[in-house]
Amino acid sequence: MIGLRKSIFAMLAPGLGLIAVFILVPIALTVWLAFTKWSVQTPFSSATFIGLDNFREIFGSTSVGRDFKGAMINTALYSVLSIVLILPLSVVFGMLIHQAELKGANLLRTILFATYMVPMIAVALVFSKLYSPTEGPFNQILSWVGIGPQPWLSSPDTALVSIVLLNVWQQVGYFTILIIAGLTQIPTSIYEAARMDGARGPALFGYMTLPLLRRTLLFSAVIALINAVQVFEPVALITQGGPVGSTNVMTYHIRRVGIERAQGGLGSAMSVTLLLALVITVTAVFAFARREDRR
């Protein structure tokens, strides 16, 4: 039995070890360094404890505070817009593909999901061409239906939304497949019973499908949120946070502050704030779902 226990430990250790060293330790270091003055150019041991000063500064009214709050708002907007667009689209496409035994459904799935294979740098670079304000294809298409040219990435009003749209383009396929997987788990007998009782169309969808999909939707929303707060590639490759900071999102900003300006402590305080916001949001969503479950 001791031999077995030893071998259990030996089997778990590499996995737990890798996660501990390369995920948990950096996160724990982030939390600690948030309360210190520390530069990336020096070892961790050079950090000096300064209490809540970093947090005071990032929530203060100096330019550091303004940039941070801007980045938080951009990230929040980006995340909310992404989720609000991705989830309903995925549900619509998932229902359509799942419900009707459409001929060619397999081909459609293959096309819909293909975007997931395209590396984010390719998506970002292609969209930067598509968005081109003068002769860009998007403005060309808009002109066919009589809509004037949009500034897309070149205006602070539309740049963030443009980045959201390319994220939606890439992610919808993945979430559609998740929704289809959730739909296939709903027994068809439940639908038949509901139809016998006279439930039709929208009622069937609102009272049967959506509640039964709740777990899938919850899981999808959390995954989409965790992906969204980590957005980096399109910002780094095409907008560099601009114009006028309108696409300066947190991962990009933290990297700029922490590595380029070498203010590791400040960057860590920003990470910790976002991490806390994320934990609170996810916990609230789960708590809300659990309460709904009990009802």
Binding site: L16, P26, T30, I226, R255, G258, S268, S271
Partner: peptide, 21 residues
């Protein structure tokens, strides 16, 4: 649960520390 926690942690937010590590 410990393993699952790994899925939930946005490691990119700790990229400065990961770099130094």
């Amino acid at each position: 649960a410990f393993f699952l926690a790994g899925v939930m942690l946005p490691i990119r937010l700790a990229s400065v520390e990961l770099f130094t590590l």
